[in-house]
Simulated scan of single mutants.
Amino acid sequence: MNIALFGPPGAGKGTQAKELSKHYNIPHISTGDILRANVRDGTELGVKAKEYMDKGELVPDAVLIGLIRNRLTEADCKNGYLLDGYPRTIPQADALADILKEISKPLDAVINIEVSDEELVKRLSGRRSCACGESYHLMFNPPEKEGVCNACGAALYQRDDDKEEVIRQRLTVYNKKTKPLIDYYGNSGLLVNVDGTGSVDSVFVVVCRIMDQYK
């Protein structure tokens, strides 16, 4: 099965992708992981990508799609793949479609995990961090003592990107950039929307029900 997973920040996409990868024994492929691996290994495309990354520039689509093409032709993708974080634009979607056709691995479905902006703000703004590496959530995983790390006793803090005004800006950008893609895959008949407001387990069951159709 060949699946692309969509979802805004805080929708639980990463958590679902990790569990789905294990459940179906197909690789979870994220563009960030691919970039880091190729830069680390010093591949030809990795060297090109690093030139842009070192200058703080976006890696061009031509380089990125080449990295993805190489990744999808590796042996562990023979039974399928789970794409995460790609494509993000219509030109990327067009380039991906061409590559997938070339390597005979077309998408079976694009699963879009939907969560309202208000719920996402509540989820993301409740996160708290500690300098020791521990993390908490005011609703789902609160510390034993308010504002204090269970592990080391240090004061917890809220990361800048977990503050409400930053979250709302991220969601505005996501919705603006993603809406055309939702329409793109909706018009192609590949899009399946999933309500992501339930528990991790309940959303997992629904997504599995969809993916089982393509086994």
Rank of each mutant, 00 (worst) to 15 (best):
E144I: 06
I68W: 00
A49L: 12
P8N: 12
Q213H: 12
V203F: 10
I26Q: 10
S129Y: 14
C149L: 12
V194S: 09
E74F: 03
I103T: 08
N175Y: 15
R123H: 07
T15W: 01
D195R: 10
E146Y: 04
D76Y: 13
Q213N: 15
V194M: 09
A49N: 08
K215R: 09
M1K: 00
L107M: 09
E134I: 07
A95K: 14
L96H: 07
N187Q: 14
S129M: 13
I113N: 13
D94F: 09
S104E: 14
D76I: 08
V148C: 11
N193M: 01
S30G: 14
D84M: 02
L72E: 10
R209D: 15
A49Q: 04
G186M: 05
A75S: 13
L156T: 05
A131D: 08
D117Y: 00
T73I: 12
G126V: 09
E146G: 08
C149A: 11
A109V: 15
R40V: 11
D98T: 15
S188D: 14
R88A: 13
D201E: 15
L138V: 12
D98C: 02
I3R: 06
Q16S: 05
C77H: 08
P87D: 12
E102C: 03
K122F: 00
G32K: 00
S202M: 11
F140Q: 07
P87W: 09
Y81L: 03
L120Q: 11
I34H: 02
G80W: 07
K13Q: 07
V39Y: 03
H137S: 08
T43Q: 08
R40S: 15
G46L: 09
S199A: 06
P143G: 07
R71Q: 14
D54G: 14
D162L: 03
V200G: 07
R69N: 06
V200N: 02
S125Q: 06
P91H: 01
D160T: 11
P60T: 04
H137L: 10
L191V: 12
D61A: 12
E74W: 02
L67C: 02
E118H: 09
G66D: 07
P180G: 02
K176D: 10
G66M: 01
H23V: 00
Y214D: 05
I103A: 01
S21L: 10
E114R: 12
F140P: 01
T178L: 09
E118N: 14
R209W: 00
L58R: 02
A131P: 00
Y184N: 07
H137F: 07
K163S: 06
Q92F: 11
L58Y: 11
M139V: 09
H137W: 08
P8C: 06
F204E: 11
L191I: 10
C77A: 12
L35W: 01
E134G: 04
P60K: 00
P8S: 15
G189V: 02
I90S: 12
G46C: 10
S21G: 14
C152F: 10
D54N: 14
D98V: 15
G32F: 09
G189K: 13
S199V: 00
T31M: 12
R88Q: 13
L64M: 15
